[in-house]
Computed example of a mutant assay.
Amino acid sequence: MSATRGAGPVITIRYCVDCRWLLRAQWYAGELLQTFADEVGGVLVAPASGAMFRIDVDGPDGPRTVWNRKTDGGFPEIGELKRRVRDLVAPEKPLGHTDRAAE
């Protein structure tokens, strides 16, 4: 176990309750926690409204949006989401087959 586990930035997934996107948000949260257990402080799943589905990563200058359903168009493929999160929280981390699939 890493001594720094849980010491990194928090990822926040805001999902529209009325749109019933909780299960999608939970699935993304589990995937991100599995992949970045040593690099992030956790994943917060937060209810919202207005057809919102946005994923942010805390940073020293405030949160940075990784994915916004309204501006990025729909929902991310899990490989794309992991690459975007990795680029912010652990740029040197290899993602194995996810990186190879993007080539």
Rank of each mutant, 00 (worst) to 15 (best):
G62R: 06
L23Y: 11
P63L: 02
L88T: 01
G74F: 01
A7L: 12
A51K: 12
D87M: 09
V66F: 01
T4I: 08
E39T: 01
V89N: 08
G74T: 11
G30H: 09
T35F: 05
E103L: 11
G41S: 11
P76Q: 08
E39W: 02
V43C: 05
V43Y: 04
F53D: 12
A51P: 00
D58F: 00
I13S: 03
V89C: 03
R100L: 14
A46M: 10
T12L: 02
V89T: 02
E80S: 14
R100G: 00
R5P: 00
W21I: 08
T71L: 12
K70A: 15
T65R: 15
L44C: 11
Q34L: 11
A51I: 00
W21S: 04
Y15L: 01
N68A: 14
K70P: 00
L33K: 14
R54D: 09
R84C: 04
D18I: 00
R84T: 06
V40K: 04
Y28A: 09
G41C: 04
G73P: 11
R83Q: 15
I78T: 15
G8P: 01
L33Y: 01
L32R: 04
L81F: 07
H97S: 13
T71Y: 06
G41M: 08
G62T: 02
M1K: 00
E77I: 08
T4H: 13
E39C: 06
R86L: 08
R69L: 08
